Simulated assay, not measured.
Amino acid sequence: MPAQALLLILFLCVLLPQAQGGHRKLIKEIKVCEKHTSIYMCRRPCEYHQDCQANNICCSTFCGNICMSLQ
Rank of each mutant, 00 (worst) to 15 (best):
Q4C: 01
M41K: 06
Q50R: 13
H36N: 09
E34V: 05
M41R: 05
C67L: 06
S38V: 07
C58R: 02
T37K: 01
I57C: 06
Q4V: 12
C63N: 11
Q71S: 08
Q71Y: 04
H49F: 09
T37L: 04
R43G: 09
N55I: 04
A54E: 15
C67N: 05
M41T: 00
K25N: 10
C46A: 12
I39W: 07
S60A: 09
H36E: 10
M1D: 09
L16H: 03
G21K: 03
K25R: 15
C42I: 01
L15Q: 07
P17G: 04
E47D: 15
R43V: 13
C46M: 13
M41H: 08
L12I: 14
C59Q: 04
Y48K: 06
G22P: 03
I9Q: 05
P17N: 05
I39H: 07
Q20E: 03
N56A: 03
H36W: 02
E34W: 03
M68L: 15
C33M: 01
L8C: 02
H49K: 05
S69Y: 07
T61L: 09
A19G: 04
H36G: 04
Y40C: 01
I27Q: 14
G64K: 13
N56M: 12
V32E: 12
Q18E: 09
F11L: 15
K35L: 08
M68Q: 13
P2Y: 09
L6Q: 06
Y48M: 06
I9K: 08
E34I: 03
C59D: 04
Q71F: 08
C52Q: 01
A54V: 13
I30L: 01
Q71N: 09
G21D: 06
I39K: 01
L70E: 15
I66A: 05
P17C: 03
G21P: 03
I9M: 14
G64N: 12
Y40M: 11
F11N: 08
L8S: 06
Y48A: 02
K28Y: 14
C67D: 05
H36Y: 06
K35M: 13
E34Q: 11
Q53P: 04
Q53D: 13
H49N: 15
L26T: 10
I39V: 08
L7Q: 06
G64W: 12
I57N: 01
C46W: 08
A5T: 03
N56S: 08
